[in-house]
Design a protein around this nucleic acid. Structure first.
Length: 374
RNA sequence: GGGAGGGUAGCGAAGAGGCUAAACGCGGCAGACUGUAAAUCUGUUACCUACGGUUUCGGCAGUUCGAAUCUGCCCCCUCCCA
């Protein structure tokens, strides 16, 4: 598809991080970028207008969840996801592969696909590579994912090999089933933390010539160095000119570490979930807004932040809203956390363009001052 | 004045002789969260010089090896009838 391609404009001399523009049918976005997650066709508590204001480029939605409610046909009748949810910029849908992992108690995997017992009423729900592609074509996102199995960590070599080979066969089947010309279908690199399996998977996917490649099976409880290894094992064997998407990563250290290793795109529920739970990412570290010490703190959450929340409200007010379980607090804090990550990316892009991404990473992590990086 | 029912940790509320420093809920405090079954989940919440010790279930006095639980008196609250 010619509407979709990555234009790499600069490579950071310190780290090899990439700056570029991703062209999509719904507009161009700069990378590296962070994509907020709107599983059910909404980034929880936020409006599209707010997301635009924060500088969000692409947002995610989920195939498994939308196929249950409201159903792919309804979204299709609505005119596709963009119209349905009033989001005119690019959308990426995940294939349901993550649910193979997260809903593992209620599913059975076979060569043909995965039979879920749907988490709402126990109905049988069969997902194959073809079914997932069909649903994603109906949803109509700009970027769609191959149906894979997100393998738990740790997993045995034998299981990882078996599953990764199956994911590869599924990728091929999805590719064959995919018809829409205005959607970029990404292949997903699995392989656990085994270098040879990651290599094999990446090389095989590269042969299939996807318009983009995802790195899956990370940020599911593995240690940070493992995650970075898995990224490196995969990226080494992926074509340079294609976009690389590290799935499910959203903490500051992982994001910066991913960029340094050549990742272009990230998504994560972390900023929105943390926000709803009163945990905030700031330039000086993590803030748990419900802590008593903020009761009378009438200063902004993050003096270095330009978001609507930080410009207009105090920590004491945010704490009050959170303690009272007021929805507005969740919105304000979601705005902040997402804006924080998007701003982190803006800084990263600028640093790459100026060949100082390594310094930027070091300084940002030092200022954050938390080993955990979120 | 007569009758009935009550007083348990910050609040609500179980418990009706030892397994009870006292269930459970709320509130408080703290923590977790990474391609969203998450506006969710976990820990903690009498006091202390804290792998042990001290003082508790309206008050006082008893019964008992042992009492929040049984007895007596007192104080207070709620409801009904006058």
């Amino acid at each position: 598809m010619k509407d979709f391609y990555l234009e790499i404009l600069h490579i950071d001399k310190q780290t090899g991080a990439r700056y570029g523009i991703l062209h999509t049918p719904h507009g161009d976005v700069e990378v590296p970028m962070f994509m907020p997650v709107g599983t059910l066709a909404t980034v929880k508590t936020l409006s599209p207008e707010e997301l635009h204001q924060m500088g969000a480029g692409v947002i995610l939605a989920n195939t498994y969840h939308l196929s249950i409610r409201p159903g792919a046909e309804i979204v299709q009748k609505a005119g596709g996801l963009h119209k349905f949810m009033n989001w005119d910029c690019p959308i990426l849908t995940d294939s349901g592969g993550f649910q193979v992992f997260s809903l593992a108690e209620n599913r059975k995997i076979s060569e043909e696909g995965v039979t879920f017992k749907n988490h709402l009423n126990g109905d049988k729900l069969f997902f194959s590579p073809e079914v997932s592609i069909d649903i994603q074509e109906k949803l109509g996102a700009d970027i769609i994912m191959s149906f894979d199995e997100c393998i738990p960590w740790p997993s045995s070599y034998e299981y990882t090999k078996k599953s990764t080979e199956r994911t590869l066969r599924w990728a091929k089947r999805g590719l064959d089933a995919h018809k829409r010309e205005d959607q970029a279908l990404f292949g997903i690199v699995q392989g656990g933390d085994y270098e040879d399996l990651r290599k094999m998977c990446a090389e095989e996917l590269a042969k299939m010539d996807f318009p983009g490649y995802s790195i899956g099976g990370t940020s599911i409880g593995e240690p940070k160095d493992k995650c970075f290894e898995m990224i490196e094992y995969a990226i080494k064997y992926l074509p340079n000119e294609k976009p690389r998407y590290l799935m499910g990563v959203g903490s500051i250290d992982y994001l910066l570490g991913g960029i340094a290793r050549g990742v272009d795109m990230f998504d994560c529920v972390l900023p929105t979930r943390l926000a709803r739970h009163g945990a905030l990412m700031t330039s000086y570290g993590r803030v748990n807004i419900k802590n008593e010490k903020y009761k009378e703190d009438f200063t902004p959450l993050d003096p270095n932040c330009d978001c609507y929340c930080c410009k207009n409200y105090t920590k004491a007010y945010l704490r009050h809203l959170h303690v009272c379980e007021e929805t507005f607090g969740k919105r304000l804090m979601s705005i902040h956390n997402i804006r924080f990550l998007i701003k982190l990316m803006e800084g990263a892009r600028q640093a790459i363009k100026e060949d100082r991404f390594g310094d930027y990473m070091k300084a940002t992590l030092a200022a954050f001052g938390d080993e955990r990086g979120f």
